[in-house]
Structure formats: structure tokens, C-alpha cells
Write a protein that binds this DNA or RNA. Structure first.
Ligand SMILES: [Mn+2]
Ligand SMILES: [Mn+2]
Ligand SMILES: [Zn+2]
Ligand SMILES: [Zn+2]
Lengths: 134, 134
DNA sequence: TTAATAATAGTAATTATTACTAATAATAGT
DNA sequence: ACTATTATTAGTAATAATTACTATTATTAA
């Protein structure tokens, strides 16, 4: 039942590239990027490593917003805003910890509160510009 | 280019059943329910109508949390808590409108803020009980 | 009633993700 | 450095949710 994770070249590169880009990429966006350095890597390997890295807390998995998962190499305490038109995600400097008020709101449901996620939704500058032209 | 929506038996039943249940069902949960009244309805019809009803504002589509879409026939201003283990969703009586503080947070990004979604995540009583037994 | 055309049932296609498997390579121990 | 163990990989197949297609049906306005 022993099983120490191994730091493979693939895992290393995936982690490095995710930490470099600040765009909260999907698995296949990251796959395209990583292929520049490891042309023979497979998409399944990218998925598997993102899963492992997220489970070990080395990266964040942004819960299914939009149609695919997105990942974040930046672990500092922050939230996100997503463009309702193109899906682009940017950082927002807000603290996500639940407040006393949140605990009171949840009390009636019988749930044990773990986390409060705030997602801001809007239109990004690029999409706003595009829209103006029509 | 004219196109007035028609109130078909299927659309009627889908809307009625969704409004009755307070469980935020997935498309196929609702499909199973509706089949009791319309045994020949197809899953595609359920999806198509949920899409139309959401677009016209008659129901809410809860943005992809978990692996599938969920729908809500209750339009009153509220938010949700989702069980991280079983996916069950319950209502939370919190106002979702962005505050001045939210607008200030978003200002730096250049986005036009449309909505602030707060999703609470926790463990539901049923799952908590199940967990205690192991 | 009738004509126009949304909407439907049934099925096929798409898409993101996960599972499978034989081959490879990272690590611990010698 | 060599070897044994086994986590990990590439490649591919399978799954699962959703969407698209198409011939037929049924709603609604005239
Ligand atoms: Mn981020
Ligand atoms: Mn609700
Ligand atoms: Zn955009
Ligand atoms: Zn639960």
C-alpha cells in the first residue's frame, strides 16, 4: 500500500508551465503548451497529472464553470471573474473564507459548511469591444 | 424570422414538474419524473425545453456545478449550497446582488460586472451520517 | 379548416473526461 | 553503478452529458 509519487519529466513540465501562465487554462490548452517542450506527451497524462497535483494541493482546480475544468497554479487566497461570452478567467483579490453571517445562513439546512465560493461573472474588455462593433 | 413559442403538452408538464420538486434536478432526473405522465417523451425534448424555458426566464439554470447541469423552477432571489459528496443542492436565503465592495474589487480587471454568484459547498446531513458509520 | 412551421421522437454525433494495457522510467536498496 | 519494484506513460478505447439531425406531428393564427 506504499506509494510515493514520482517526479517525472512530464509532471515537472506541466507544473512549471501552469505556474508560468496566468490564464487559468483548460486541460487541453495546457496540453498544447506542454507539447512545445514534450512533443510526445499524451492528453491523458496531462489530465492525470492535473488530478494528482490538485489532490496534493500543489495546484487549484477551478470547479466546473463553463463547459470544461480550469486549473490555477497560483495558490494565493483569491477568487475569479469569468467572462460570460468567451469564458476567460481573471483573478479577483477577495477572501473566500466563510463569515459568521455565512454560517448563520447555512445553519437551517443541516449542512456542514466547508467553503464559500464567490464567482463573479461579467464581460471582459475584449468581448465588450467586439460587441461595440455590431 | 417570426417565431412564437408554442405551449406543447411536453413543455407544460416539464414546467409543472420542475416547479413542484424542490430538489434542483438534473435533466435526466426530471426526464424520469416526467415520463410518469408522458411515457413517450424523449430526453432530447427535456433538454430542449429546459434550454428554452431558461432562455425565456421561466426557470433558472444552475451553472455547471458538479458534472451536470441542474435546474430550478423557483425564481425567488436566493443562492445554493451543494453537497461535495453527493451533489445534492439546497436553497440558501442570501441576496446575490453585487455590492459597492464587489464593484470596487472588479474595477481593476476591466470587466463589466454582471453578476456575483455565491456557492456554498459542504456536506449534507445524509452524507455526514453515512460517513460516521465508517 | 387549413396552411405555416415550431416542436417532437428517435437516433446519431460531439465533446470532455476517464479507463485500460503493455511498455517505460523513477526511485530505493544493494 | 546495478537491479528490482512499481508508479507512470503513450496510445487507444470507453463513458457520459449534451447537442445536432431528420422525417413526422401538432400548435396556432388566419
Ligand atoms: Mn487565479
Ligand atoms: Mn433553489
Ligand atoms: Zn470575453
Ligand atoms: Zn450529500
Amino acid at each position: 500500500m506504499e506509494s510515493r509519487p514520482r517526479m517525472t519529466k512530464q509532471r515537472q513540465v506541466i507544473l512549471e508551465e501552469l505556474r508560468m501562465m496566468h490564464t487559468h487554462p483548460t486541460a487541453d490548452e495546457l496540453y498544447e503548451r506542454v507539447r512545445d517542450r514534450l512533443p510526445r506527451i499524451s492528453l491523458g497524462t496531462v489530465y492525470r497529472n492535473l488530478e494528482k497535483l490538485a489532490a496534493s494541493g500543489m495546484i487549484r482546480r477551478l470547479e466546473k464553470t463553463g463547459s470544461q475544468m480550469r486549473f490555477d497554479g497560483d495558490l494565493h487566497d483569491h477568487q475569479h471573474i469569468r467572462c460570460i461570452l468567451c469564458g476567460r478567467i481573471e483573478d479577483i483579490e477577495a477572501e473566500p473564507e466563510p463569515t459568521h453571517c455565512d454560517y448563520k445562513l447555512v445553519a437551517g439546512t443541516g449542512f456542514r459548511l466547508i467553503e464559500r465560493r464567490v464567482e463573479y461573472v461579467g464581460v471582459c474588455p475584449a468581448c465588450e469591444a467586439k460587441k461595440g462593433k455590431m
